[in-house]
Simulated assay, not measured.
Amino acid sequence: MHLFVEITGGGDPRPGEISLAHHGVLFLDELPEFDRKVLEVLREPMESGVIHISRAARQASFPARFQLVAAMNPCPCGYHGHPSGRCQCTPEQVGRYRGKISGPLLDRIDLQIEVPALSAAELQQAAPGESSAVVRQRVEEARLRQQQRQGCLNAALQGAELERHCQGDEAALALLAEALPRLGLSARAYHRILRVSRTIADLEQAERIGRGHVLQAIQLRRMMPGGA
């Protein structure tokens, strides 16, 4: 699989997987198994939405505004933290495995969710959730609200527009100011949390970002230890 570019027999660059995922989803399974140098190149298009390729005398730029979805195990064997105690990985092995994902790359991933293993009883007794149709309608309404308010989705807000449309109440701003040094958040993470908070507020049809929205956005951004 060519993530970034394919070189044809004539030497002409062609779009790779991330450009083919433009305005769509790029799913990377077993994220640490990708070469770290390859993953690091994702950082530029994740910020700019464009991938620039230079090969000898040939240069090309391709659109690459995609939504990155990635999955990985908690450790090499996949059982770290499992209640069965089956994991035999040492702390050093776990650290090396997770360290394949750098801090700067993690900093660009807005939602980082741990999905624990469920027992058979939990699977069988699971209460029915919302239907996909109900969730889709709520998401579509939130997207429409964003377009009407600012002419773009929250993910595209930058600079002054971000500050203008992602205003929080006093409690929300106080929580964010407290979390910044306590959690060691970067300026990039601060702004990404603002965007996610604004989106959560939109899903709840709230005019302003509240403390609960910021708290949820922070909880959805649990930085995985081990990145460097």
Rank of each mutant, 00 (worst) to 15 (best):
residue 155 A to I: 06
residue 13 P to L: 10
residue 64 A to K: 12
residue 81 G to K: 02
residue 118 L to W: 07
residue 55 R to I: 14
residue 77 C to H: 11
residue 37 K to D: 10
residue 117 A to L: 03
residue 32 P to R: 04
residue 99 G to S: 08
residue 80 H to K: 09
residue 40 E to I: 11
residue 24 G to D: 07
residue 205 Q to H: 15
residue 21 A to L: 11
residue 100 K to Y: 07
residue 145 R to V: 00
residue 114 E to K: 02
residue 179 A to K: 06
residue 100 K to T: 12
residue 141 E to T: 04
residue 111 L to S: 01
residue 111 L to K: 01
residue 112 Q to F: 02
residue 140 E to C: 00
residue 103 G to F: 01
residue 120 A to E: 13
residue 42 L to W: 10
residue 220 L to P: 03
residue 125 Q to W: 01
residue 55 R to H: 13
residue 112 Q to N: 01
residue 69 V to Q: 00
residue 181 P to R: 09
residue 200 I to Q: 06
residue 2 H to A: 14
residue 6 E to V: 11
residue 168 G to D: 07
residue 74 P to I: 03
residue 50 V to P: 00
residue 114 E to A: 07
residue 13 P to R: 05
residue 17 E to Y: 00
residue 133 A to L: 10
residue 90 T to L: 15
residue 42 L to H: 05
residue 78 G to I: 01
residue 39 L to P: 04
residue 128 P to G: 03
residue 21 A to N: 04
residue 201 A to C: 11
residue 77 C to I: 11
residue 33 E to A: 10
residue 209 I to W: 08
residue 69 V to I: 15
residue 217 A to I: 13
residue 205 Q to I: 03
residue 205 Q to F: 10
residue 72 M to P: 13
residue 146 Q to S: 02
residue 36 R to A: 15
residue 60 A to K: 14
residue 115 V to N: 00
residue 202 D to V: 09
residue 10 G to K: 12
residue 28 L to E: 07
residue 31 L to C: 04
residue 44 E to A: 13
residue 206 A to H: 15
residue 39 L to Q: 05
residue 135 V to T: 04
residue 202 D to C: 11
residue 111 L to Y: 02
residue 73 N to G: 11
residue 26 L to T: 08
residue 75 C to P: 03
residue 66 F to R: 04
residue 105 L to D: 00
residue 50 V to N: 05
residue 22 H to F: 06
residue 55 R to K: 12
residue 106 L to H: 01
residue 62 F to G: 07
residue 32 P to A: 04
residue 23 H to A: 15
residue 165 H to I: 11
residue 217 A to P: 12
residue 38 V to R: 00
residue 62 F to S: 09
residue 87 C to H: 03
residue 98 R to D: 06
residue 126 A to C: 02
